[in-house]
Design a protein around this nucleic acid. Structure first.
Lengths: 205, 205
DNA sequence: TCCACAATAGGAACACGTTCTAGATTGCCC
DNA sequence: GGGCAATCTAGAACGTGTTCCTATTGTGGA
């Protein structure tokens, strides 16, 4: 079988390799969803994905890379879902951004263990994971600037520098809030309220 | 020697115990400053503080508690320093806040390994460290609201709810920026610029 | 002073992330 | 089909955070 590998960058490799990669990420997801960060043990992931420990490390050089990659996959899926949704409800930029953030946050809070695992990994990542982190960051920024302009006349214009700055600040607040929630230092309600306040301060049109 | 323990809450215990606690935090600080998070190895801390490993764990139940406690001590010292400084330079709230943030950030960036260790610990902390984290968070918020009003007529009034909300958002941005810097995902200059942008967006008087 | 008992020292033991080794399997080129 | 390089499996081995155990030391009360 001589596949010609006419695939996107992320999907290089043979079918068997893509399959292994998927099995590994699926196992990671399942374990994280069940028991959080601590339950994602490399031996357990390898077992459940039916690969050897060495193979797991060949695909993902560390537990952090593994979890951040799983997070990136989730964000991709979420982004696709939002694109399918069509125009985002809300009359003002603030309302639309809050809508998107709450929607995403609710999705995450619906699977607390998984969120804990992914957020922890994200926060613990060092420069060797910069590429994956950047993917996630861009995805979030894009989502937010898109929400600001959705359904507006300027929808297809490039976001301004200020838009991007605001999106980044909101992303920062969101990460901090998520961190506080994940580590049990604030409730889901407080997290939502804090986010809403921050968006209100940043987007007062 | 029957000391009557007329001490503040944090300093309960005999003189020998307070001394051990100090030796442990000093050793933590020295190791962190030298080699960062990874260099703060519990056996090394115990050796350098001249206590047994079990004793170290009796005083601080985990490496994270240890490092967050060291961070809290640093923040206390920093707060005292700023109080000694008198009025904060700057004509607008934004300018004063930026002054304080840059000053603090510069202090941290002057000891990158230490900052890396303390920030990592802060981000990895779970609810069992909530008390220590809360101390640090309050310290930061106080510092920021103080900067907003320093030298103003309203200096001694209580900060408004909006002030506190703004301070918290700035704190979030600061933590995210610090995280990106610590993990080698952004430079010191980018960190400063991002902070400045955020403060500009939040405090446009 | 002496006794009970808590705190400490010293170090073994265990868990999990990570690395390494040796042999089996697969895929590709001739 | 044969050879060769890459990949995979199975599992041992190692480092560091954490727990546990035993002997020793310090301390406060009778």
């Amino acid at each position: 079988m001589s596949t010609t590998n006419s695939l996107t960058v992320e999907e290089l490799g043979s079918a068997a390799q893509r399959d292994r990669r998927k099995r590994i990420l699926d196992a990671t997801y399942a374990l994280a969803s069940d028991g959080g960060f601590d339950a994602v043990q490399m031996r357990a992931v390898a077992d459940q994905a039916e690969v050897a420990l060495g193979t797991l490390y060949r695909y993902f050089p560390s537990k952090i890379h593994l979890l951040v990659s799983a997070l990136a996959r989730e964000f991709d899926r979420n982004e696709a879902l939002i694109k399918e949704m069509g125009p985002i409800p809300g009359d003002t930029a603030a309302a639309r951004v809050i809508y998107i953030m709450k929607r995403t946050t609710r999705g995450l809070q619906g699977d607390p263990k998984l969120t804990e695992a992914l957020t922890r990994a994200f926060m613990f990542a060092d420069s060797s994971v910069a590429a994956e982190i950047h993917t996630v960051g861009m995805s979030l920024t894009t989502m937010l600037t898109h929400a600001m302009h959705s359904g507006q006349p300027t929808e297809h214009a490039e976001p301004t520098a200020e838009d991007i700055a605001i999106a980044r600040v909101i992303g920062d607040v969101w990460l901090s809030a998520l961190m506080a929630w994940v580590t049990g230092r604030s409730s889901a309600a407080e997290t939502g309220a804090h986010l809403e306040t921050a968006v209100g301060l940043l987007l007062r049109d």
